[in-house]
């Protein structure tokens, strides 16, 4: 009996070992973009965040995992892809380090920056004055507009004015919490962690509308063409890269990379790939400055 028990223990230990060696941590690895910098990386002064990241050889960037076309997991490859990831990758490439992508929800992305879980946040985050008090932003790398999404056969909602008494879904911690409170005070807000939950709720009829950035809503229409956008744009939402508060050297560096990304044609290519081919609309890289973006919200 004693011998059998030892044999079982050994098998169990082996099985555990195999599991640890093979399966776990898979997510982190596969989420890596896989593209390493081809150009010779720049050198930075000792003590800067850029130098520290180069020393570590990797940068942790918080992105969305369920928000096509800005940040989402490709089911086939397991990689995270989207417009936000293209910008993030440009920053990692400029540093010459590996990008490690982690999921940052609207609700936890600012805490992630503050507690150092993420070095940067690129998760469809609108620049505004309240957030600017807590963290720093790069110059805007994209400008979205606030819109409303309803079912195609719903004629009762044609704009924000029709949302009174209706159930409207948006993400917890997004700017739309306040936008809806202001523009449609009698609407019943249903706050979820991730926009994929809003898609589920409108599909199963639990909510009447979803309100958030046009590009996120377009992503939902790509997945389900029985949905449509209605009404005029509600708000202007300039997306910025989130950086830990007070790190002005890093902020400057990130804004510089964003500018380069806009100037050398990568922005246009990325826009076409993720947005333009679906909306059939052309767009120019945003020229709005960080200050203008912050002023916009006040």
């Amino acid at each position: 009996m004693q011998g059998t028990r030892w044999r079982w223990m050994a098998i169990l230990a082996l099985a555990l070992g195999v599991l640890v060696a093979s399966g776990c941590g898979d997510d982190d690895e596969s989420a890596d973009g896989g593209t390493t910098a081809t150009t010779q990386a720049r050198t930075f002064d000792e003590g800067t965040t850029m130098a520290r990241l180069q020393q570590a050889g990797e940068i942790t960037i918080g992105v969305k995992f369920e928000v096509p076309p800005f940040g989402f997991k490709n089911v086939q490859s397991g990689d995270v892809e989207g417009f936000d990831i293209d910008v993030a990758q440009a920053i990692a490439d400029e540093l010459g380090v590996e990008a490690n992508y982690i999921e940052a929800l609207s609700d936890n992305r600012i805490p992630f920056l503050k507690d150092g879980t993420a070095d940067l946040i690129l998760s469809t985050m609108t620049i505004n004055a309240e957030r600017d008090e807590e963290i720093d932003f790069s110059d805007p790398y994209f400008i979205a507009r606030g819109r409303i999404l309803v079912k195609e056969d719903d004629d009762s909602i044609n704009g924000v004015g029709d949302l009174g008494g209706k159930e409207v879904c948006t993400a917890l911690g997004s700017t739309y919490e306040d936008t809806l409170k202001r523009e449609a005070p009698t609407a019943k807000r249903r706050l979820v962690d991730s926009y994929s939950e809003c898609l589920e709720l409108i599909q199963n009829g639990a909510v009447d509308a979803v309100s958030t950035d046009d590009v996120i809503l377009t992503g939902m229409i790509i997945q389900d063409d029985s949905l449509k956008l209605v009404g005029e744009p509600l708000t202007t939402e300039p997306y910025g890269v989130g950086i830990k508060d007070g790190d002005s050297a890093f902020q400057e560096f990130v804004s510089e990379v964003v500018q380069k990304f806009k100037d050398d044609g990568r922005w246009a290519a990325s826009y076409q790939k993720w947005v333009g081919q679906y909306t059939e609309e052309d767009a120019e890289p945003p020229t709005m400055t960080l200050k203008e973006a912050i002023d916009l919200s006040t």
Binding site: D107, I110, L172, D178, V192, E197, L201
Partner: peptide
């Protein structure tokens, strides 16, 4: 609250946290 998008105690606390950053 988290699964059904109901504003229970935890959800309200998270809404406050996301607005005030006083996590």
């Amino acid at each position: 609250g988290a699964a059904l998008a109901v504003n229970d105690l935890l959800k309200e606390a998270r809404i406050i946290a996301s607005r005030t950053f006083e996590t």
